[in-house]
Design a protein around this nucleic acid. Structure first.
Lengths: 151, 151
DNA sequence: CGTGAAATATAAATAGA
DNA sequence: TCTATTTATATTTCACG
């Protein structure tokens, strides 16, 4: 899917505030509302925009502990096995298999330290997990999501 | 800020699709549109909802390489110094100071391997950076954002 | 919290460059 | 094929009960 400068501008505006009206978006990029709607529809059909959502403040919701967990698995654990296991825990907000010594990296948001520890224990108890190594987030520096590169 | 069950339901629905109308949300939780609007306004004022945004598909936008970078800094580097430096790079989507041996962890989305390498070099060249250690994402397993725990 | 009405935004069809 | 205009429909918003 090809994106021109106007598409990139629209994406940047929508990442910043997805509630802007088509008319408002159009005024900022030099298009009419319906032209903007056509482009946004096209961006959705094309898969560039995967959805509309709200961003939440973890602290305001009671998520006070954040951390990352490296998973060291027994040989030949299929990714799907890992995915199915970590999916069980709502505290896991992000998970990927990675290169290097560890097999997977999990991003965790927990209610408190006890909650974090509980998730760690439960995941560590999975038969395919040899060991885990975790770090706690001290302070968030940047939280940009997967927005488009500055245009 | 206190949230009742209805607030949590509304948050879960909005995380899944922030474009639902107040009337639709109301029908799902048993409220009228205006009651829903009042609650959503309150959730915004209270800071639980920090914004409305679109989710993008990195691959569809040409971001093909994802990775994590640990930063080892020279002693007594203030977090703000790290933040200011990593903010310069649009490829950094997430950054936090962490416990453990490394001082900070960066989450990177790059156009390609050359782009990833370039960011790594530039950040590694910062005077406060002693060394970096990076891993590449092989395959994403879960991508849940900071949604509310399943209700 | 619910109702109802005015202001606003969206969506679909049509026409023009 | 892309954009602009029009018109019907739906949503948001707000004062009041």
């Amino acid at each position: 899917m090809r994106l021109d400068r106007l598409d990139e501008q629209l994406l940047a505006l929508l990442v910043a505030d997805a509630r802007r009206s088509y008319a408002d978006l159009g005024a900022r990029v030099g298009l009419t509302a319906s032209a903007v709607k056509r482009r946004v529809d096209r961006l959705r059909e094309g898969g560039a925009i995967t959805g509309f959502t709200v961003t939440l403040d973890p602290a305001a919701l009671g998520w006070t502990v954040e951390g990352y967990v490296e998973l060291y698995c027994r040989s030949s654990t299929p990714p799907e096995t890992i995915r199915a296991a970590v999916e069980q825990h709502a505290e896991v907000v992000d998970a990927s298999t990675i290169s290097g010594e560890a097999d997977a990296l999990l991003h965790i948001l927990a209610a408190d330290m006890r909650d974090f520890e509980r998730v760690l224990e439960r995941i560590g108890a999975e038969p395919f997990v040899a060991r885990t190594k975790s770090v706690l987030v001290l302070s968030p520096l940047l939280r940009r999501g997967a927005g488009p590169r500055a245009v």
